[in-house]
Simulated assay, not measured.
Amino acid sequence: MGQKIIRFSDLTGEHVEDDDDLVRIVVRRHPDLADGPVEIEALAGEVAAVEELALDLVTIELHHPGSDEPRTVVLEAEAFDRLATAAPMAEVLHGAKPVARSIPGQAAASTRAAKERVNYATLANAGRPHKGRTTDAEKQLVRDHLEEINERLAAEGVRTIDPANPEHVARYGLESPARATGLTQD
């Protein structure tokens, strides 16, 4: 038994005879769009006039004094160009200072990270699980104060350092304590 898939245009409901006639449309912004971009399909003929209907738009950010967040405004290029009265907008834009490119929130995130950076080479933080490189100073602290650090970690509800765990032995250079307790083979 075979199956036949019948496809229809999302715009008009018209039957699609040939999949090559379908155009994938991603709607990124629309007043009725609440949960982010969506994808629809339509026949090529149904969207042929879209490019002719397209507007030349300008997206600007207004950074008002005393406001933490800018306001984004989208307007027609022609209306925006009329704002420049001292010189044509093309000249104004050509002589304008470039904006440093950044990832949204990058500056705030790097500032937070700098404030929240933990120094694992201190007795108060050594041995805590972290993704970064284990420094020689942290390794030395763990080797010299293993029992004390494990007591702190247990009190904090964090995993303790196990000299029988090969990952912990490698991470903190615990080969000597592990050998001394007979937990490794020579």
Score class of each variant (00 low, 15 high):
37 P>I: 07
37 P>N: 13
37 P>W: 08
38 V>G: 05
38 V>H: 01
38 V>M: 14
38 V>S: 06
39 E>C: 08
39 E>W: 00
39 E>L: 03
39 E>F: 01
40 I>W: 02
40 I>N: 00
41 E>V: 14
41 E>K: 06
41 E>Y: 12
41 E>D: 07
42 A>R: 00
42 A>W: 03
42 A>C: 07
42 A>D: 05
43 L>V: 06
43 L>R: 04
44 A>G: 13
44 A>T: 11
45 G>D: 05
45 G>I: 07
46 E>R: 01
46 E>Y: 04
47 V>F: 04
47 V>K: 05
48 A>L: 07
48 A>P: 00
48 A>Q: 09
48 A>I: 10
48 A>K: 14
48 A>R: 11
48 A>C: 04
49 A>L: 11
49 A>C: 01
49 A>I: 11
49 A>N: 14
50 V>Y: 14
50 V>S: 05
50 V>T: 12
51 E>I: 08
51 E>F: 14
51 E>C: 06
52 E>Y: 12
52 E>I: 06
52 E>A: 15
53 L>N: 09
53 L>M: 13
53 L>W: 12
53 L>F: 06
54 A>Q: 07
55 L>A: 12
55 L>C: 02
55 L>K: 14
55 L>Q: 13
55 L>S: 10
56 D>K: 15
56 D>I: 08
56 D>H: 11
57 L>G: 09
57 L>C: 14
57 L>P: 09
57 L>Y: 04
58 V>N: 10
58 V>Y: 10
58 V>H: 13
58 V>C: 13
59 T>E: 15
59 T>G: 13
59 T>L: 07
59 T>K: 04
60 I>Y: 03
62 L>I: 15
62 L>R: 08
63 H>Y: 05
63 H>G: 02
63 H>F: 10
63 H>V: 08
64 H>M: 12
65 P>T: 05
65 P>H: 05
65 P>G: 03
66 G>H: 07
66 G>A: 05
66 G>N: 05
66 G>C: 03
66 G>T: 10
66 G>E: 05
66 G>M: 03
67 S>L: 00
67 S>Y: 01
67 S>T: 00
68 D>P: 05
68 D>I: 07
69 E>Y: 02
69 E>V: 04
69 E>R: 06
69 E>N: 02
69 E>Q: 11
69 E>L: 06
